[in-house]
């Protein structure tokens, strides 16, 4: 009985940790130092400045916004819901 009641809590703790790490990664990569991975060199040709027709920096931002949104929605449907009165 005690093991049963502990299992979901442990699962939530893991999920919480994963979501925090995912969100932190999105903050670091999206507007943070991770930007350097896709930032075009000054000598780069115009193709290097775009991705799927969008400016590569903008597309990068949209991708990490998707990750942030996923983390917030998942937390809202799982971790935060269990905390409701």
């Amino acid at each position: 009985m005690a093991a049963d009641s502990k299992t979901p809590t442990k699962r939530w703790q893991w999920l919480g940790l994963v979501l925090i790490l995912l969100f932190a990664l999105a903050m670091f990569m999206g507007p943070g130092p991770g930007l350097r991975l896709v930032n075009p060199e000054p000598s780069a040709d115009s193709e290097a400045l775009r991705f799927l027709g969008l400016p590569v920096i903008y597309a990068w931002g949209l991708f990490w916004y998707g990750i942030q949104a996923t983390a917030v929605v998942t937390a809202s449907l799982t971790l935060w819901k269990t905390d409701d009165e």
């Binding site: 000054p42 115009s46 400016p55």
Partner: peptide
């Protein structure tokens, strides 16, 4: 986006036109 992609390099890259927005500062 076709027209935006023809903007100067500084407008489409980091740290921007005035060089103020480095990734570390943005973070």
């Amino acid at each position: 986006f076709e027209k935006v992609n023809d903007l100067p390099h500084t407008s489409l890259s980091v740290p921007g036109t005035t060089g103020s927005f480095t990734p570390e500062k943005m973070f």
